[in-house]
């Protein structure tokens, strides 16, 4: 299970990173007026960074070996 979880987690991180890259590119490409309100996107991105770091820490805390994708009766 730990191998599957790791693969799924890496896929999630890659997908989330791609989403962030697209969203930020979009924000910069189409922004028209100069403004100090970029703080809001900065705060959201800081929260995202913090949560990604926490998710990384928690991922290695989870005892993945004790979980199974299928119930024992199927195996």
């Amino acid at each position: 299970m730990s191998g599957v979880a790791l693969i799924l987690y890496i896929l999630f991180l890659l997908g989330y990173g791609a989403f962030l890259w697209i969203a930020l590119w979009h924000l910069r490409a189409y922004r028209v007026a100069q403004s100090g309100n970029d703080r809001v996107s900065g705060i959201i991105l800081a929260c995202v960074g913090l949560l990604l770091f926490v998710s990384l820490l928690l991922f290695f805390q989870v005892p993945w070996q004790s979980y199974s994708l299928f119930p024992s009766s199927i195996r």
Partner: peptide, 23 residues
């Protein structure tokens, strides 16, 4: 761990809402 992933999806939604609002 599941809760943090859930919050990350919510923040993604919030970022999209902000981009729609700001642009």
């Amino acid at each position: 761990f599941s809760a943090v992933i859930y919050w990350l999806f919510l923040l993604a939604f919030l970022l999209i809402a902000w981009i729609e609002y700001w642009l």
